[in-house]
Structure formats: C-alpha cells, structure tokens
C-alpha cells in the first residue's frame, strides 16, 4: 500500500469489471491499439497515390510561416489578409513560431480585424447586431436560471465577465465617439468664437489705422 511494495486494492475485481462493462479489456493488448507504436512507417495505408501532392496554384500574397521552406502544396484560401489587421498579421509572419512576437501580433491583428469589420458592417445592409450574434436570445428557451443556480457551478464566478468582454469594446467605442463629437462641437464653437474675436480685433486695428491715416493726412494738409 504505497509505503510497501503492494498496489492499493481495487474496489472491484477484474472479473467483476469484465461482467459489468461491455467490451472491458477488448484493447488490453497494445497490439490492438491503433496508435501503438506511435511511429509506424507505412505508405500503403493512407490512400495517397503520390510522394508529394500536386501543387495548388501559387498565390504570392499568401502568408506562410518562416519555418516552412515554401508555401505548402495545399492551403486554405478563406479570408485573405486585408486592411490594417492584414498588415499587422503580415508583420507577425516575419517572426518564427518560437517568438512571442509572432503570436502576440496575430492576437493584436485579430482585435483590429474585429474592429475594422464592425465599422465596415455599418456601411452594409446588414450591420453587426450584438444581440442576435451573441445568441443571448436563446437564453429564454434554455432554462437560464435552473441551468445556472443551485448546482455549484464553478464557472459562475466568471460568467458575469462575458457581457463585459462582449459589450466593453462597443461601450468604449460609443463613449469615444460621443467624446470625439462633443470635442468637435466644442472646438467648432471655440473656433467660431476665436474667429469672431479675431475679426473684431482686425476691425478695431483697421479703424485705428484709418483714423491715424486721416489725422496724419490732416496734419500734412495743415502743414502745407
């Protein structure tokens, strides 16, 4: 029992287990386990009738890991890079997968991509709708209270953060837009006020210049 050479006894004998559980021990022999041994050289199993697959047409714009010698012969073509997020992702692929910069830049690109696409969606007939896209409307038919409470769920400790993660960027963007708008209005008013003040000052200066000119003209006329 742990402090002696013996293994702690099982609750059920192996015979009892064999009787209770369908198929118990069917793969007891490692030879019956398909991933044993881990590396098994076989070229007749996969169905491949090539040593190297045909190449998909090369796409110069397609990013690849610098740890690859060349663009792999087969690759996905969905969602090509574009915009600022695409530039950040392009930068990420200059670093090897062993560098934190590679992954952190990709994560940054993801956040920028989301922002770009949300903004872009407002110029379409189908703008992003956080209510339908988060699926929260499904709450009503899925027993939201019974599913969550009185059951000791560990994830309730952080589930309240989900709306913050989802709505936070929208609220922040909204607040920034309002602040920016107000600042613009204030600046316009300030500009207008400054413009009017400047116009008044210029007017006063012009008046003084006119008066001085006429006085000096009178003096000159008188001195004749």
């Amino acid at each position: 029992m742990t402090y002696t050479p013996d293994k702690p006894p099982l609750k059920e004998s192996l015979d009892e287990l064999r009787a209770r559980i369908p198929g118990w021990g069917a793969d007891l022999d490692p030879k019956d386990r398909p991933s044993d041994p881990k590396l098994e050289f076989r070229t007749d199993l996969s169905g491949a009738h090539w040593r190297f697959p045909d190449r998909q047409p090369d796409d110069d714009r397609r990013e690849r890991s610098v740890e690859h010698q060349f663009l792999t012969p087969v690759y996905g073509t969905t969602c090509p890079r574009r915009g600022l997020s695409g530039a950040v992702r392009g930068l990420a692929y200059r670093y090897s997968e062993g560098r934190a910069a590679h992954w952190l830049l990709l994560m940054l690109g993801d956040r920028i991509d989301a922002g770009e696409n949300h903004v872009r969606s407002f110029a379409t007939l189908r703008p992003d709708n956080p209510v339908t896209e988060t699926g929260v409307l499904g709450e009503f038919s899925r027993h939201p209270v019974r599913s969550r409470f009185g059951r000791g769920r560990a994830d309730l400790a952080h589930q309240w953060l989900d709306p913050v993660v989802v709505a936070g960027p929208w609220v922040a963007a909204g607040a920034l837009a309002v602040k920016g708008g107000r600042s613009l209005v204030r600046n316009r008013a300030a500009l207008a006020a400054a413009g009017a003040g400047a116009a008044r000052a210029v007017g006063r200066l012009a008046g003084r210049v006119r008066r001085r000119t006429s006085i000096s003209g009178e003096i000159r006329a008188g001195s004749r």
Partner: peptide
C-alpha cells in the same frame, strides 16, 4: 448563434 451561446454557458 443560440447553440454556441447555450454550449458556451452550459445551459439546458
């Protein structure tokens, strides 16, 4: 979308 939300929040 509702299915992902249900699975993510372990409803029902």
């Amino acid at each position: 979308a509702e299915a992902y939300h249900m699975f993510s929040t372990k409803l029902d």
